[in-house]
């Protein structure tokens, strides 16, 4: 640990990133450019989120890292170890115990509080990118609030699939101003974007940071006759019986047996710890 500055990045870099974070909080949903640094991990591993976490952590913080809701994936484990080694901070798998949570592709099921910070790893921050590849033009569209194209995408969805097929990275409008990509969280998580905790979004390769202060108004885009729906698999969790959590489908054997389990592993375990059980709860436990 003594080989590194606290949390790996030098103080000047962290100050630069903090300025970007503060600007992002001052203008919710606006993508702030920042000078992304080389990190000792590949881009796909959340270097944007790691830099934001590094600039956010203090020695007193307790860090939780999740990937698709799970604490035990390779990606989550390696980022958690990275900060254990470079910052010496305490780590946890319990959502309620963490002061900083870095996440990829999920929002924890348990409601977050005002003393928590949720840091997202973002692959592509620009929601307009897919229809307008020119960055000069997308910046102008944000500046002038020209967001008709976002609905063109939803229109195309409905005309091709009969419904809004976008189920991840579902675009939102922030405080009735900026259209924002919430990162590839399932649209089930979109309503949770209005929360008590601070939310910070870091895109390393794309060198953008954006943010949502506590209780920011976040509305999912839709049509009057095709309203937004925060859908999930129509099952309870097979392990803990939860009916309100986002589920992963797990193939059990070659015979095609499947089970549905909470993607948030901490949520599922804590429910089982207090006695909740699902269809396969006994066997699996």
């Amino acid at each position: 640990m003594s080989d590194y500055n606290f949390a790996y990045l030098d103080e000047q870099t962290k100050r630069m990133i903090r300025r970007a974070i503060l600007k992002g909080l001052a203008v919710p949903g606006y993508q702030v450019p920042f000078a992304s640094r080389e990190m000792p991990m590949p881009y796909g591993w959340g270097t944007g989120g790691v830099q934001v976490s590094a600039a956010t952590l203090t020695p007193d913080d307790t860090l939780k890292v999740i990937d698709q809701g799970a604490d035990d994936t390779t990606n989550a484990v390696s980022i958690r170890k990275f900060f254990e080694r470079t910052a010496g901070v305490a780590t946890t798998e319990e959502t309620a115990q963490a002061s900083v949570i870095q996440t990829r592709h999920r929002i924890p099921e348990a409601e977050l509080s005002e003393d928590q910070i949720l840091v997202y790893q973002v692959p592509i921050p620009e929601p307009l990118r897919f229809l307008e590849p020119r960055e000069t033009e997308t910046r102008k569209m944000h500046a002038l609030e020209e967001y008709g194209l976002m609905h063109v995408k939803l229109y195309e969805d409905i005309s091709q699939h009969g419904d809004i097929a976008t189920s991840y990275a579902y675009p939102v409008k922030v405080e009735d101003r900026y259209v924002m990509d919430p990162s590839p969280i399932p649209k089930f998580d979109n309503p949770k974007l209005e929360m008590a905790a601070i939310q910070l979004f870091g895109a390393g390769r794309e060198q953008r940071i954006y943010a949502l202060p506590p209780y920011t108004r976040v509305v999912s885009l839709d049509f009057e006759d095709f309203p937004f729906e925060a859908t999930k698999a129509e099952h309870p969790c097979d392990l803990c019986g939860a009916e309100d959590s986002y589920l992963d489908e797990v193939i059990l054997d070659d015979a095609g047996n499947r089970m549905f389990v909470c993607s948030d592993t901490d949520y599922c375990r804590s429910r089982r710890d207090v006695g909740h059980t699902g269809r396969l709860g006994e066997q699996a436990a």
């Binding site: 008709g148 009057e224 006759d225």
Partner: peptide, 9 residues
């Protein structure tokens, strides 16, 4: 849609 059309039908 650019001028606020929000009814798909």
């Amino acid at each position: 849609m650019a001028v606020g059309g929000r009814h798909y039908g």
